[in-house]
Design a protein around this nucleic acid. Structure first.
Lengths: 155, 155
DNA sequence: TCTGAAAGAGTTTAGCA
DNA sequence: TGCTAAACTCTTTCAGA
């Protein structure tokens, strides 16, 4: 039985799409030695599988003036509904990601903001909306994320 | 003087590409009331600008068996070269992102692994390669990142 | 599950407002 | 900047192996 959701060729295709999601099927096919039709079938299957969730553009936020990144650790009262925090936080444009944590802290929020004043207002807003008993904010000096080399500001 | 790198229409185009980077130029054009040629020119410009860094596929790693996420806080000795940590860590397939931090801890590594044994080995490897004076690992219960709704496991 | 071919879409370039 | 139009490329489907 094929108990694997994807095979080695699918993995290669995913890697190529991770590097550049706008590659054409023909280009991918040439690299994995497959016809465009075969590549299409595999990608379609991975989308139906849910292995491929979607495709997105990678943006240099610093160029748009949102040059500051931070992590805020949140601690809640015992009665706080964690799902509620996630829901309200994810509506803030400053939130890049929200992680609920087992143990201490209770959650970690990755923020991106324009300046320090903006950071302060953002943290205040998170505190205002929830029964947060404490926050600790870590300022990010530099970041790297897989599949996206943070540009080295060649301006 | 046009001191803004992008205008409101560019912003709309970015938002549409963030939702689905494989949208066609014609589809984007219809949504922002522009011809496909005009949309193309704007996207080309944003790529040359460096505002658009690239395009990538969003993968459901849990479906591929890498279902565990964690953050590891790292503390180094005073003599540790931070750039070195980033370089070696980013080579590990388990590392999703690496953040260097001002203050304490010195760095935050976002890891994705298959199981707890794998997590342990990964953390051991990070410790082995560097003059790490201490680590603290936060287990992620649930995560959300912008532009990628973590699938609600409809299996 | 693959390939190859044909038809339909989408992209890209060029010329002009 | 924008538009339209034409040439070109890519995607998608289908028949056959």
């Amino acid at each position: 039985m094929a108990d694997q959701l994807i095979d080695e060729t699918d993995r290669e295709i995913l890697e190529l799409l991770r590097e550049d999601a706008r590659r054409t099927l023909g280009d991918i096919g040439a690299r994995v030695t497959l016809s465009t039709a075969a590549v299409k079938r595999r990608i379609d299957r991975m989308q139906e599988n849910g292995v491929i969730v979607g495709y997105t553009v990678q943006i240099d936020h610093a160029k748009l003036g949102w040059g500051i990144e931070a992590f805020t650790e949140l601690r809640f009262t015992g009665t706080t509904k964690v799902g509620e925090i996630v829901r309200t936080t994810t509506r803030m444009p400053e939130a890049q990601a929200v992680f609920t944590i087992a143990g201490d802290p209770d959650a970690l929020v990755w923020l991106r903001v324009r300046d320090m004043g903006h950071l302060q207002r953002t943290i205040d807003e998170i505190r205002r909306h929830h029964q947060v008993t404490g926050t600790k904010t870590l300022m990010v000096l530099d970041s790297w994320t897989r599949g996206q080399q943070w540009p080295l500001d060649g301006d």
